[in-house]
Design a protein around this nucleic acid. Structure first.
Lengths: 239, 239
DNA sequence: AAACGGATGTGATTTACCACACAATATCCC
DNA sequence: GGGATATTGTGTGGTAAATCACATCCGTTT
């Protein structure tokens, strides 16, 4: 877990963090530089924990590079993944804005990840100087709320087949790369984690994936590549 | 569906709406009056729809009196209740702040309800004049996000018994009234709707409620009264 | 390339939820 | 207060998913 300043010019980092972070979009180059001076930069190895549910943290975490999963765990240890966050996205805002609340989830790096950290004081300062930033954050949080509402609906859907199809379609949006005859998804997570996202067992994912494969909707190669042959058919299949 | 201005002094309304709305807390009396001049006031009968999923609405709905349920519906018509909102809470912010998005849910009055409406333009103006308001809204949305994350986790929990116990504990916080030997919950919704909240069938709610009653954890009287004899025992039961 | 360990697929069994049907209440309205 | 109607409780069977056990595959390391 190496630390350095975000505008540090070693470590092959060419431009300041905030440049590619939507909530800082619209800031001038000068302001970007000012913000980047405040950020601390931390690297996490795949598998490391960034945040622990129930603790307090007064920092805003911004994903600079890599990917993290945001999870909650039930009493008996079952994991529920809430989000998979990639570059430019942020987390840790709950305690930051509602100081009496604890972290509502845990966060783990699912690949080697670089994080930019902002303290509450610095963010307060930034928001005071640039009031439009709090509006940007508000918009981002509102969008995430819509995502979580959709997740809740998906989880409420009894039929696991539909849930799994939903997941694939969501991953098409988030990770899909357009190829000649379909969409290639480089899965960032294991089957077990896919299961933890849609709320079924690992075995069910296996069986449903091969069912979809037999139906010609998708094709699998290796454990981390999923090719969606026919997105429309998949969408129709769950109607 | 009667309409009138929010500071209208008929209809037994004694004080301006914004007075009891957390996001307008901290405004001076003068500002409150200014805001209340902008609000339109609508009454809905129990069962009426306030908002329809998939449509657009550029208004912020603030619950002045009564209660509404916020729901999504799956393909085959199954309802998933996301929130039950009471006086002072608001909804409709998704399209308001992200103009390209549609409403993510439908909203129905579960009892006779009075709503204060603010247009996007008016809210923009208010937030421009009082920048701290957008921060208040941000805090509220972040808290709601935490609620929805918890709901997602609850729905992911396979065991319906645990989910139902969770619901009862949540209702203790939201609707519970402390009594001599326990907490009385005046249920605002039917069993069917309880079922739609925790994602099981109505029948399962019946069976689990009577199981909890036999265990001495709760007692029921009529259809709308739930008495939690021992909140701690209930909490321990689901561990 | 081979060997190792973790991840994934698959079969058999068990479990408990859903769905349906109907009976028993509760609530509403006159 | 009493009847009508909506809401809720309960028995039963079918079924799909969880669970468990084990075989197989993949991807990494040497």
């Amino acid at each position: 877990m190496k630390e350095h300043n975000c505008n540090h010019d070693t470590h092959k980092i060419k431009e300041p963090c905030p440049k590619n972070v939507p909530i800082f979009g619209g800031l001038s180059n000068e302001e970007i530089l000012k913000v980047s001076k405040m950020t601390r930069h931390i690297q996490y190895k795949k598998g490391q924990m960034l945040l622990h549910e129930g603790e307090k943290s007064d920092k805003l975490f911004i994903v600079r590079k890599g990917q993290v999963k945001v999870s909650k765990f039930t009493m008996n240890g079952k994991e529920q993944i809430l989000y998979i966050l990639t570059s430019g996205e942020f987390f840790g805002e709950l305690h930051l804005f509602n100081s009496d609340e604890f972290n509502n989830f845990s966060v783990y790096a699912i690949e080697d990840t670089e994080i930019c950290l902002l303290t509450k004081n610095d963010l307060d300062y930034i928001m005071k100087e640039n009031p439009e930033i709090s509006l940007k954050i508000l918009k981002a949080v509102i969008k995430r709320l819509a995502h979580t509402e959709n997740l809740a609906q998906t989880l409420a859907t009894k039929d696991p087949e539909v849930r799994i199809a939903h997941l694939i379609l969501e991953f098409c949006q988030k990770f899909g790369k357009e190829k000649d005859e379909g969409i290639l998804i480089e899965l960032p997570i294991t089957r077990e984690e896919v299961a933890s996202y849609v709320g079924v067992t690992r075995e069910r994912i296996s069986r449903k994936f091969s069912k979809f494969e037999n139906l010609g909707l998708i094709s699998l190669s290796g454990n981390k590549q999923l090719f969606v042959r026919n997105q429309l058919a998949l969408r129709e299949y769950i109607q």
